[in-house]
């Protein structure tokens, strides 16, 4: 009984992870400029990874495999924001202009902010 519940929970997590991955991929194609695409990429790198890894953890039970899966998740969650920030910072230094709504300030260096 308990095993069946864990299995179903694990299936739901895996499928949700896959769904969030595809939605993030669609966002990567649909959003208008580089900066908003970063958010879509964030979608595939956070909840997609979290759901799939936790789905697999439920399958693995308490073992060395679970520890390794959680380590993978930890590395992904530590490195993904750093990589995203680095790309964004590089684009900012390269003066890639973001598409912004009218009420937003322009993107400039923090010291030169309006």
């Amino acid at each position: 009984m308990l095993e069946a519940i864990i299995n179903i929970l694990s299936w739901l997590l895996l499928l949700a992870g896959g769904a969030f991955g595809i939605i993030g991929g669609i966002g990567l194609l649909r959003f208008p400029d580089f900066y908003s695409r970063m958010h879509a990429a964030g979608l595939t790198e956070t909840l997609c990874a979290i759901c799939i890894i936790f789905g697999l953890v439920l399958q693995a039970g308490i073992s060395l495999l679970t520890l390794k899966l959680l380590l993978i998740l930890l590395f992904l969650l530590f490195t993904a924001p750093t990589a995203t920030h680095a790309v964004a910072r590089a684009a900012m230094i390269d003066e890639v202009e973001p598409v912004l709504s009218e009420d937003s300030p322009r993107l400039v260096d923090y010291e030169d902010r309006p």
């Binding site: 900066y35 970063m38 958010h39 879509a40 964030g42 979608l43 956070t46 909840l47 969650l77 993904a80 924001p81 995203t84 920030h85 964004a88 910072r89 900012m92 993107l107 260096d109 923090y110 010291e111």
Partner: peptide, 12 residues
């Protein structure tokens, strides 16, 4: 940055 919807572009 980890929460989609907000990304840190510069950290001074």
């Amino acid at each position: 940055t980890l929460t989609p919807g907000t990304v840190t572009v510069q950290l001074t």
